[in-house]
Design a binder for these strands. Sequence first.
DNA 1: ATCTGTTGTGATTAAACGGGTTACACGGAT
DNA 2: ATCCGTGTAACCCGTTTAATCACAACAGAT
Lengths: 271, 271
Amino acid sequence: MDSESEIEEAVELLKQMGLKEYEARCFVALTRLSGGTAKEVSEVSDVPRTRVYDAVRVLETEGLVEVQHSNPRVFRAISVGEAVDTLLDRFELKTEKLGETLRGLGSATPDEDAEVRHEVWTLADGRAIANRTYRLIDDADREVALVVDSEAFKDGKLVESLSSALDRGVEVFVGTAEEDLRDDIRENLPEAEVFVSHVEALTDPSNFPEDDTRITRMVLIDGETFLVSSFRDTGGGGSDEHAVFGKGFNNGLVALMRRLVSDSLQTGSDD
Amino acid sequence: MDSESEIEEAVELLKQMGLKEYEARCFVALTRLSGGTAKEVSEVSDVPRTRVYDAVRVLETEGLVEVQHSNPRVFRAISVGEAVDTLLDRFELKTEKLGETLRGLGSATPDEDAEVRHEVWTLADGRAIANRTYRLIDDADREVALVVDSEAFKDGKLVESLSSALDRGVEVFVGTAEEDLRDDIRENLPEAEVFVSHVEALTDPSNFPEDDTRITRMVLIDGETFLVSSFRDTGGGGSDEHAVFGKGFNNGLVALMRRLVSDSLQTGSDD
DNA sequence: ATCTGTTGTGATTAAACGGGTTACACGGAT
DNA sequence: ATCCGTGTAACCCGTTTAATCACAACAGAT
């Protein structure tokens, strides 16, 4: 029975969602059992029996477990579907409230010059980078140039952002090194220009076999904001995605990106 | 000002979403500030300044904060909208996985993270940039690839650094877009390889007449450190020179530079 | 150059928390 | 009564986290 590791994963996830170890273990045990007493739960979960009561009490107040007040007490977990929904709902509420609260805070900015001529920022975490990409595209005024690998293009939201940009009248150029991905793009974004030339060759891993850092995205917005994200598969499951993100017309890197892209469009245009 | 309790609430929510106290306080502070240094964050958040760095580092890896690697460092929170989206996305992923795991009893799971840090710095002021360039070249172990315009090459110290690198046995590649400068280089650095191909075309202003930002230097050291400097002639006598400078093998920009240069050397080699 | 205040890192201390154990009181069954 | 399973509560101890301190690197001023 290899369910050991599965159990651990579930416990880990539950802990990340705010449960304590005992609570998580008890909950997992209770979903495996159809229901059970403290003793049974203890045996299945390896939580000391005397602590099952505390753990379950918490789970009860969180609405994840039902209690039958008999003697001995019998506990039962709500269904997995319900549990997932409940957790998600609760979290959504929290994020909403957080959003409101944060927005409502007066800006404590001491005093600043708003004008930023030259900035380069780094950003980690794949999701955050993806979100930033959408937002950049959403804020584009005139032009979006984008080079992606298949991984990055799979994301539905990206296509969505791009087509809404097209609807706004923004010019969209998309490049990729992957043959079949180009057809995908043409199909999903008929109005966008698909191009191919040296820029996206830079993102093709097969051109650089000894280099284990993949370039997953290159974006240039209105010729004055860029984002380059890269990805490296670190041995263990740890994904290591980073982005560098810069803006300002006089930023050298922005200029560089501008030239790379303009080069590419001149030379390669449509394929 | 009753924002006190509001702040408390936001912090509390963030903690419930998995952040530590310091992390939460720093994040809230950063959303109130448009951006700030460790000192400013410390003042607003009441987190000891020396601990702000750690907290922000975590926030960065979670994708909630962007870091500008200048000196002093400047931190900036991603927008509230992005933050909420990111947190929600992440949580959704977890619930999905949890649902699967709990329902089925199938596959295994490893665990994570080996960590490699990347950095990107910005640097202003021509002299500081020049000095940094020398230092980078002086520290090179194997290889220096350099693209310059005439302005930057005039500097005697640059030639000095380069020849001492050559003496150390470091391979030196120099590219430039300017015809007569190439002869200069061959004369002064007979041992260096002078090349010409697309990379330095990017620095040729005549290729980009509408773009008033000149790229004055591009340096790549040992394939893992780069520097790009640019220059813009601001109307009033103010010279406006900036550089972006990054290192770390897993840094996407470094990878990009690496590829640009390797491309160039393959295609163009010596003229 | 030297001096001075600031910035970033690392080590260290102290308190809080959570996991694990033990003591014990209660109630029903024998 | 005694015995056993149940439920409560107190405690111990290792880990984590908040908080402080010492210090090297650096920038800017003199």
